[in-house]
């Protein structure tokens, strides 16, 4: 009896959804670690593991935000530029002469700016009705241009508490950034699974028309996911500025690839409505570990970028094959 009870309890938790890609990903991850460790034993040293954990958080946090957008069946490829502009806003507001804004306020301004960019994207997509990829392709260029405009020279931030935000450790070994990432992931996981808003997101992505008929405000739901995505991208920008103690216009260049790859690899279906954040957690670790492993194996940066594009393409192929198989099973 007790046994049966625990089983049903596990069923109700069901962290790995049925047909989930996550178990496969975990196996791939373990194999990968074994390969990289055999190429360079330093790979599994404590210092390197710490550095992997500290660096993956930025893309992880952004992937959590982007996931909500993709779940509604939309895209946001302006996240890299949002990161850049948030980092520069941090640096510029901190350096305003004679104002001496408290660092908390500066960070809050940067996050609000990110949310505002998300709101612009959301407005263009839901109210004006432009395709989300074209919208964010446009805002990607606009905000990258603005980032270069504001950061004509590198802006430094030498302020210990601010640097601690991105470089600090808890218990000497756990990076603070990892705690932000896991905290945000757990929070969003709970929101997606147990709140009305979360269920709406899945419904909008699975079938927008049906959701509308069921009384879900499709536009409002989509709008808020873009705001979440913008705000998380800004979080990435704040952390990056704090880790490097400066900000410049190039920050976040090409991040849209990275984040999109994480989401697709995590099994967040590009058609919308399918996938969980557990996959995002594993995929973030995998991609972070790959780029770290390739760097330790002395692979040149261009090859690493090519590899990333390759992973993206393989991941979307897998996604399409899974969608097709599901359709066949349903028919």
């Amino acid at each position: 009896m007790a046994n049966k009870n625990t089983k049903s309890f596990l069923d109700t938790i069901n962290v790995f959804k049925k047909n989930s890609m996550t178990p496969t990903l975990i196996i791939v991850y373990i194999l990968m670690i074994a390969i990289f460790a055999s190429v360079n034993p330093l790979y599994i040293s404590l210092t390197n593991i710490k550095s992997i954990l500290a660096t993956i958080s930025i893309s992880g946090i952004m992937a959590v935000g982007l996931t909500t957008v993709i779940l509604t069946g939309n895209f946001d490829i302006s996240v890299g530029s949002t990161l850049g502009i948030a980092a520069i806003i941090c640096a510029k507001f901190y350096n305003i002469e004679g104002l001496n804004l408290p660092i908390g306020v500066v960070i809050l301004i940067a996050l609000l700016a990110g949310a505002a960019i998300g709101a612009i994207n959301g407005f263009l997509v839901t109210v004006v009705g432009i395709n989300s990829i074209i919208t964010t392709l446009g805002t990607l260029a606009i905000f990258r241009g603005l980032a270069y405009f504001f950061a004509t020279e590198t802006a430094r931030i030498y302020y210990k508490p601010f640097i601690f935000v991105g470089r600090g450790y808890v218990f000497n070994n756990v990076p603070l950034t990892l705690i932000y990432f896991i905290g945000l992931l757990v929070l969003m996981y709970l929101v997606l699974r147990f709140t009305k808003f979360g269920r709406n997101i899945y419904q909008v992505g699975a079938n927008a028309d049906a959701a509308r008929l069921a009384g879900v405000s499709v536009d409002r739901t989509t709008f808020f996911t873009f705001i979440i995505s913008g705000a998380t991208a800004a979080m990435g920008g704040v952390i990056m500025a704090s880790q490097l103690a400066f900000a410049q216009g190039e920050f976040g260049l090409g991040y849209e690839f990275k984040i999109l790859t994480i989401c697709v690899l995590a099994g967040i279906s590009l058609a919308g409505g399918r996938g969980t954040l557990v996959g995002v957690l594993v995929a973030t670790f995998i991609l972070g570990s790959i780029s770290n492993g390739l760097a330790l194996a002395d692979v040149p940066i261009e090859w690493r970028e090519a590899f990333q594009g390759l992973i993206l393409i393989v991941a979307i192929l897998i996604d399409s094959i899974r969608v097709r198989r599901e359709k066949l099973l349903r028919a």
Binding site: G138, T139, A141, G145, Y148
Partner: peptide, 17 residues
């Protein structure tokens, strides 16, 4: 040049909008 990039993005969005 950074304005040009900015205008490119703006142009795309304004046209489609």
């Amino acid at each position: 040049s950074y304005y040009i990039q900015l205008f490119q993005g703006l142009a795309l969005i304004i046209i489609v909008a």
